[in-house]
Nucleic acid binder design. Structure first.
Lengths: 208, 208
DNA sequence: TAGATTGTTAATCGATTAACAATC
DNA sequence: TAGATTGTTAATCGATTAACAATC
């Protein structure tokens, strides 16, 4: 099974990883496909099917060991190391991201935070992300640290500019928290988060 | 076509809505399936297929009118009215959400913001969301205003408590921005946002 | 043993894509 | 007319699900 995963499988495995990480924090040692299903809304049969493609990780009548399944999925997704990311924007959203445990929990390290407001430069936001750097230094720092992931937490009006700078410096994956549409070269992936659109989608099924 | 949409179709239509909303803001009047495809990474044929199930909205050789397509999709998704939501947590993340234009742009109104810190109560966060209310009043306010959507922007440790209060007051859709797993009754939908997990997924395809 | 849950099969359904005629 | 883009067909592939034997 050295084959490349399909998008669907990789995306579901990531969801399982999230559930397992939390289950472990809550002190759970075993978990069944049905329990994972309750938290992810992914069918329990599909979960067992996804996992059994890579090995027999479970025990019949018992379930899966949280710890060992966590390890197996990390192996499959090859996400065992540390990953460095750059955060652009040290406003309220940037601060919320920098101080959230959500990235650190998965081995993701905010290696640099940038802002173009001189009043923000030098401040310490978050607990583990260094002090805010001037946006003018973005290209040099991102290039020097070989960062390939950037998070955009600036207003829509400056989002494209920030994107261009990141892309120029070698970034290949962009998480866009502004509502702007971003133009990027074909070898760069953009993930846009838009809770409002997700909400409309959820409402459709609630109302129907 | 009074049938209920499949989850896939509804989710893709929501993405088109997001692109069209931005395209309109940028002053675009026409858009082709290929352009929508570039922004969403959804195959252009699939986009035309999704739309043609509901009518002939495009003009061959020309494309789609941004304005009329926006209207058609809103009709299909039945999201033309105003929707009220409750926001729990007025910290950095709550403030970022309340001051973002992302919800207002889609007709979603933050009808109430709650926090249990007495220092936050009474403050004005965001431009259009009233002042912060004491969490003690959550149940009454949410019930009175018939709010069915709640956004959790509190630390993981208080997320379940906030969820229970929302559910008790009649909320049926929860957007969870904490990393906690939430237990809810079966008729309540939880959408958990976890950028770290999405990032691991994106990295897999970058590295493979 | 009895109960629970995995791993797997088989059948169905929706998503995806290429190709192309229709037509603006 | 020439070029562009839709709407639609047909073929393929992966996702989903029920069912159940295997087995802890």
């Amino acid at each position: 099974m050295a084959d490349r995963l399909t998008v669907g499988v990789a995306s579901r495995l990531s969801r399982y990883l999230q559930v397992l990480t939390q289950a472990k924090k809550m002190g759970k040692e075993r978990i069944s496909s049905q329990e994972i299903s309750d938290y992810t809304n992914i069918n329990a049969t599909q979960i067992r099917r996804d996992l059994s493609g890579f090995g027999k990780f479970g025990k019949r009548g018992v379930g899966y060991s949280v710890d060992s399944l966590l390890g197996e999925i990390r192996k499959i997704l090859r996400t065992q190391g540390q990953h460095n990311i750059a955060l652009v924007g040290a406003g309220r959203l940037g601060q919320a991201i920098a101080s959230s445990p959500i990235f650190a929990e998965h081995g993701i390290n905010i290696a640099a935070v940038f802002d173009r407001d001189p009043d923000m430069v030098g401040r310490q936001i978050g607990s583990n992300s260094g002090s805010v750097l001037d946006s003018k230094s973005l290209k040099d720092v991102v290039r020097d640290k070989n960062i390939i992931v950037g998070v955009i937490a600036v207003p829509a009006a400056s989002a494209q500019e920030a994107t261009d700078e990141l892309v120029d410096s070698g970034v290949k994956i962009i998480f866009n928290y502004s509502e702007a549409l971003l133009d990027v070269p074909h070898d760069v992936q953009v993930h846009t988060s838009n809770p409002a659109v997700e909400l409309l989608h959820a409402l459709y099924f609630h109302l129907a």
